[in-house]
Design a protein around this nucleic acid. Structure first.
Length: 722
DNA sequence: TCCATTGACGTTTTT
DNA sequence: CGTCAATGGA
């Protein structure tokens, strides 16, 4: 069989990785080195050359997006259906296992996945019920603790150091929370993994079955695996499975949520005769960008070692811009983007990346003012919106009335006169009798434990749910969704909000109905015995959907450094390059390891840039209401100066007080006076109102009649006297 | 039950 | 400074 198409597009290292004949493989894939390509070609190689059944391959990723991309590209390469291939996230794979083996895993048949928001509500409820002080035991902190323990594979009973009073309380809440979930048939994200791991651990027959079937494992983004995920890989591989992992220790940026870079080193230690292949040729960035990134990351210790290179040219220097403050920084960035656009480049080719989400606001304001379309990554996703979750909670309740999280959510949404007091009584009843909320409510009514009005209200709610279930049991998913929204009168709940908000919510609910109508039960869910409703609910939790509706056509991209991982842009701005902000103060304080992770974050950011990279910082930044002066990021010092070009030299001394700008009094050799009328190619006519800097760095502030006030670098702006 | 004021807090995020 | 959640008055 001719397999040249599998190899001809690959470089030597990529080819080596793809064609390793047997045994375990570790691919250290640098940024932009064709990691996904190797993974996909390896998959195709196993099937077409090694004649492996598609059924015996398991490919694992971290995000649904990555899984989808891998499937798509494999499909394009193999030109056969990829249906039988098991490609998915750790969580989706664990989910599938648990659906098939729910009994062996000790789960309820119709268990429901809860997202972190549901989880937090449950934890908060338990903390209150236990009579704990929420200030002393913040729910989010305990939620974090529970997930961290689960990610380490620990159960309340297996946690030592109970002698510490704080820890003891945390473990206690973990135990209570777990009992709640068991009773209500709820499974959180971390539980999916630990439960699947326990399933394999405790049921040798099940493990043996999957070991026999899944003989080849492929793992993407291996440096992001946590303890339990690595344990799952080891367990499934056993002595005979072959494991092919791809990762980059220099791009490990999720240590703070449990990812263990050490797994990369453990892999070489734990698996026999691992073949290590380095992908160091970069197909993305210029030589300058790579040299600076290499120099930066060299400051980290204990690396596996890797040096990116490119066959492309050196490209332009990296521009460093020292802004006076964060407003001026944003103005500078937007001005450079305008310049980029004026050159005929596209907005979507430009990305502004920053360390903290709060930094996006200033850039948004400036982009808005400049009428440049933009898109901010992150934020609420479709299935996380309140109205969508409300509607889904009704469906969850139809499917499983013992779902306490769902019941809490909708018992008084929309308002049906079931207030805090009534709900508290029901909770107390549930707690006393050890029953789910739904059953406790039934008991309370039967035993007449509630005052008359509350009793009627609760009974009315229960009847509503029962009636919906009765009526809609055999309806299609779309009709069920529509029915639930109508009969629950959910829209009523949002009527009091502003018209704009309400319209958006109604639109989202309609979109939810559309999603339900067009939902097709995936074959693997059908095999696992899921109803369309169960499957839909699981998908809603497991893949919360796009951040924003449809991608706008041609937008400047705004995102945190974390969400930039895996992406690439011709023009990249890294903003807020200040010590304290980036590296973040907390990371600096916490440990040397955390600082190294920040450095990797910087490395990730830099290697997103294909053609041009700008690094900017503000000398003064207003933060938490007060102004703070900060040094430029230490990471700037770690890049070779000859690769950097300061666009405006840093001020030798700080200005006497923040915000003071040079005025016409400054000895500046400008062709314009204050009040001078000027003309700009793009912005039209305006008047000079301020100056700063000198020589090629001189800037003027112009009040344009149409475009408003703008700071322009004289050297670029091409201003004419009007 | 609803809105308004007050107070605490202030990395990073996917599943 | 801004946001979010909790509290309290009408």
């Amino acid at each position: 069989m001719d397999v040249s198409h599998l190899l001809e597009e690959l470089n030597e290292a990529q080819r080596e990785a793809v064609t390793v004949d047997q045994g375990h493989v570790l691919v250290l894939a640098g940024a932009g080195s064709g990691k996904t390509r190797v993974l996909v070609h390896r998959l195709a190689w196993l099937i077409q050359v090694k004649h492996l059944s598609p059924l015996s391959v398991l490919a694992v990723t971290f995000t649904n997006k990555a899984a989808g991309e891998m499937r798509e590209r494999t499909q394009a390469l193999l030109r056969v259906s990829t249906r039988p291939l098991w490609i998915g996230t750790f969580h989706s794979i664990a989910h599938r296992l648990l659906r098939i083996h729910w009994r062996e895993a000790g789960l309820q048949e119709h268990f429901q996945i809860i997202d972190s928001d549901d989880q937090l509500r449950l934890v908060r409820r338990i903390i209150r019920e236990e009579g704990l002080d929420e200030n002393q035991f913040p729910p989010s902190q305990i939620q974090w603790y529970i997930n961290a323990r689960k990610d380490e594979g620990q159960r309340p009973s297996s946690i030592e150091h109970m002698d510490h009073p704080l820890t003891a309380t945390w473990v206690h809440v973990y135990g209570r929370y777990h009992a709640y979930c068991e009773r209500a048939g709820l499974v959180d994200f971390a539980e999916l993994l630990i439960r699947a791991h326990e399933l394999w651990l405790n049921e040798p027959a099940v493990l043996a079955h999957y070991r026999k079937r899944l003989t080849h494992l492929l793992v993407d983004e291996f440096q992001d695996t946590n303890t339990i995920q690595y344990a799952m890989i080891r367990l499934l591989a056993g002595d005979s499975g072959e494991v092919f992992v791809v990762g980059d220790d220099d791009q490990s940026i999720y240590g703070w949520r449990g990812a263990r870079v050490e797994n990369v080193q453990f892999f070489v230690r734990d698996f026999p005769q691992v073949r290590t292949v380095r992908l160091e040729q970069n197909y993305r960035s210029t030589g300058t960008i790579l040299s600076a990134a290499n120099a930066l990351i060299a400051h980290n210790e204990g690396r596996m070692g890797k040096r990116l290179w490119t066959a492309a040219g050196e490209g332009q220097p990296i521009r460093v811009y020292a802004a006076f403050n964060e407003h001026e920084e944003a103005r500078f960035v937007i001005e450079r983007i305008e310049h980029w656009l004026a050159e005929g480049r596209r907005a979507e080719e430009a990305a502004i990346v920053y360390r903290t989400t709060a930094q996006s606001r200033l850039f948004e304001e400036q982009l808005l003012r400049a009428s440049i379309p933009y898109r901010v990554y992150g934020g609420l996703r479709f299935f996380e919106r309140a109205e969508v979750k409300d509607a889904l909670a009704y469906l969850r309740l139809l499917q499983n009335p013992n779902d306490d999280a769902a019941m809490e959510r909708v018992i008084n949404t929309p308002n049906r006169a079931i207030g805090q007091k009534t709900v508290a009584m029901l909770r107390a009843q549930a707690r006393e009798s050890g029953l789910p909320l739904w059953q406790a409510a039934g008991e309370s009514i039967r035993q007449e434990l509630l005052p008359g009005r509350a009793r009627n209200a609760v009974a009315g709610f229960m009847e509503l749910i029962l009636a919906m279930r009765e009526r809609m049991g055999d309806w299609t998913l779309g009709n069920q969704m529509q029915g639930v929204i109508e009969q629950s009168e959910l829209a009523r709940h949002y009527e009091k909000e502003s018209r704009e908000k309400m319209e958006a919510r109604v639109e989202n609910l309609q979109e939810l109905v559309n999603a339900a109508e067009s939902f097709i039960l995936p074959a693997e869910d059908e095999e696992a015995g899921l109803s369309p409703l169960q499957s839909f609910l699981s998908h809603a939790a497991l893949e919360a959907g796009e951040t924003q509706g449809a991608d706008w056509d041609d937008c400047v991209q705004l995102m945190t450094l974390h969400s930039a991982k895996g992406l690439e842009f011709p023009l990249v701005f890294m903003a807020g390059m200040e010590d304290g902000l980036f590296p973040h103060q907390r990371s600096v304080q916490e440990s040397a390891g955390r600082l190294e992770e920040e450095r990797r974050l910087c490395y990730v950011g830099m290697t997103r840039a294909m053609e041009q990279l700008y690094l900017s910082y503000a000398e003064v930044r207003r933060q938490y209401g007060s102004e703070s002066y900060s040094r430029p990021s230490r990471f700037l010092d770690e890049m070779p100066t000859e690769l950097l070009q300061e666009i405006r030299p840093r001020m030798a001394t700080h200005r006497p007080y923040p915000g003071a700008r040079p005025t016409a009094a400054d000895p500046v050799d400008l062709p314009f006076r204050l009040g001078q009328a000027v003309r700009h190619r793009q912005f039209g006519e305006g008047m000079v109102v301020n100056f700063e800097g000198s020589g090629e760095h001189a800037r003027v502030q112009v009040n344009f009649h149409q475009a408003g006030s703008k700071w322009l670098v004289l050297a670029y702006a091409n201003l004419e006297r009007a």
